[in-house]
Nucleic acid binder design. Structure first.
Lengths: 337, 337
DNA sequence: CATTGGCACTCCGGGGAATCGAGTGCCAGA
DNA sequence: TCTGGCACTCGATTCCCCGGAGTGCCAATG
């Protein structure tokens, strides 16, 4: 089965290259790994692997380096996500259990991920779409001006200021508040939006309609979708070589949350662990960085994403394990709340 | 007046070094700047300046480089904050005027500063302490559970959940809400806390006391004091040399908001433009970075800080001008709101 | 036919040696 | 007090050489 051995060789190359950061040659390969064949044989395999595009050599007669395609094969077929040790699990638990609210959970997760993987970690705040409305509050801040406050089960608060044409009496306000709350409270946000919208006909011009409009807007506001926490940027300092080409665009991307979201992947892919290697991503400038991400969130389907981004030359099994473990733990945490 | 010329030489050295990033020698100095003396004369001055500790040479018979002490003198006596051009002012205005709320103002400011100075920008969120209470809302979320919402003039919302021992009727709730609002609404936050605390004697055990406690806590909560926005980290990529020694600790500091706050300086120093050069700062690891910061905020006295942090070898006049201009504009913006 | 040992070849990277040149310090003279 | 001249220093650049790791190919072997 020379085919099988070839894959073993590829795996060994990836592992060695990740560990040493240097092109790996046939001789050191057979020494470090216990493949029971001679360097010459390995060389033949390497030549074949190179023909197929899985590895490449930086210069003539240097060692081999995995290509993106090689990493892809490695991730897809040559590795299993290695389970976390009990100690690591405990560490995750202790760190995350101390969180007091949603913001805290996200911040702790991001630090934890950065620490575990020694890469840059990115955590998207859970979307509103799955949370429920806890309360709607209307407050008159001026005669014809209302402050609409939307309080969600996650503890998040959205607010809008609404101008109304007619002055409202206190009784009208109380009544309106009651109506709106009756429609929205306890509903998940999408349903609440529908229910609230049903309260006012489109051509209505009363205060109700203005408030309804603001509420619907607040509910469907995607700003919180775009909220993201980033951590572990200091790990970029370990890039050392290839600085301008790799670190600079990444640093820029870290401040563009829209780009980060795109990197994490579309939320529609669910809670699958996804790995995007180098050029597979949407940005050319980031062609030497990979992303390991997954969906997470309470309930069955993930509704936000978290992950890490680092050089293509990274420890995929370890990163994948960490990302998955953190995602699972956070999801459970959110489930309980 | 050889003393005067010496200072001119120092200024020229600083300017050249900042521009070229290379040690500057006597010959190129007299060429680039119009001091009407010979290189030899300048050399004598340089020797004197070196004796006094304002400049130093990296290696024997290389050019001279300013020391921290040299930069200090430069900043204190040899430079005036150069006014911004009309175009720059317009740019500041257009960018900041588009802001829709406090978060937006802060985010835009941080980007703007980073863009103007090409350094890392840091903006502290305005503290609650100077803002006024717009409204207090009490919401029963369960029979013996109240959600206390504190809405401030800045648009910030603080919330607390309170457990009360006795069940409250709707009337009691309305009354309590009225009492609390009468005491707090319109007051600046410190006064409001005092007023609210006066509502319930310390040994009281009623719902009032629980609510009061939560409110006071929310009002004095310092979490928002610590909120900080950072931008322009990509500018660190321009450091090029001295990477591990300078960029790494800075990247680490950027994630530790407590450290950033310390770097920005104590808020008690008011709205003075302060410059901290290299080792003058509280952290040894950041001995090759400087901070240009100032207080800002509505009203006369600054109550939050913003600034930039970059290499000691930076364009101080330009940075100071940008920081001050942005601070002023933001302050005016907050004043209007 | 896959595997292996042998062999010639390539080329990167490190270590000197030589050179260049910008810059300095010092001194004597104006 | 300033200036020109001069000898000296020393980091950076260039060049060269060589070692070593690695390759590709080929003929031999099980």
């Amino acid at each position: 089965m020379q085919e099988e051995r070839r894959l073993a060789v590829l795996r060994a190359i990836v592992e060695d290259y990740v560990a040493t950061e240097e092109p790996v040659g046939s001789k050191s390969l057979v020494e470090r790994h216990g493949l029971g064949v001679s360097p010459a044989t390995v060389r033949n395999d390497m030549a074949a692997l190179e023909d197929e595009g899985y590895i490449t050599q930086p210069h003539t007669s240097a060692g081999r380096v995995p290509t993106d395609k090689g990493y892809r094969l490695f991730v897809d077929r040559l590795t299993t996500v290695k389970p976390m040790s009990a100690a690591e699990k405990r560490a995750i638990a202790t760190i995350l259990d101390g969180a007091v609210d949603l913001d805290d959970v996200v911040n702790r997760s991001v630090r934890l991920l950065a620490q575990l993987t020694r890469q840059v970690a990115v955590v998207q705040y859970p979307t509103l779409s799955r949370s429920t409305v806890r309360h709607v509050e209307l407050i008159a801040v001026a005669p014809t001006r209302l402050l609409v406050v939307l309080i969600l089960s996650t503890g998040r608060v959205e607010q809008r200021v609404v101008e109304v044409t007619d002055e409202l009496t206190e009784e009208q306000l109380v009544e309106l508040r009651a109506i709106v709350n009756r429609a929205a409270t306890g509903e998940i946000i999408a349903d609440a939006a529908t229910a609230v919208r049903a309260l006012a006909p489109a051509d209505d011009e009363t205060a109700t309609s203005a408030v309804v409009e603001a509420l619907v807007e607040a509910m469907s506001d995607h700003r919180s979708d775009e909220r993201i926490a980033v951590g572990g940027a200091a790990n970029l300092a370990r890039y050392g070589d290839s600085f301008d080409s790799a670190v600079r665009p990444l640093l820029e991307a870290l401040e563009e949350h829209v780009i980060l979201l795109k990197l994490l992947g579309e939320a529609t892919t669910g809670d699958m662990l996804t790995v995007r290697i180098g050029h597979e991503g949407p940005y050319q400038e980031l062609s030497s960085t990979s992303v390991v991400a997954t969906g997470y969130g309470p309930g069955d389907e993930g509704f936000a994403r978290l992950g890490i981004v680092g050089p293509t030359r990274m420890d995929y099994p370890g990163s994948m394990a960490s990302v998955r473990a953190v995602a699972r733990y956070v999801s459970r945490l959110l489930d309980e709340a």
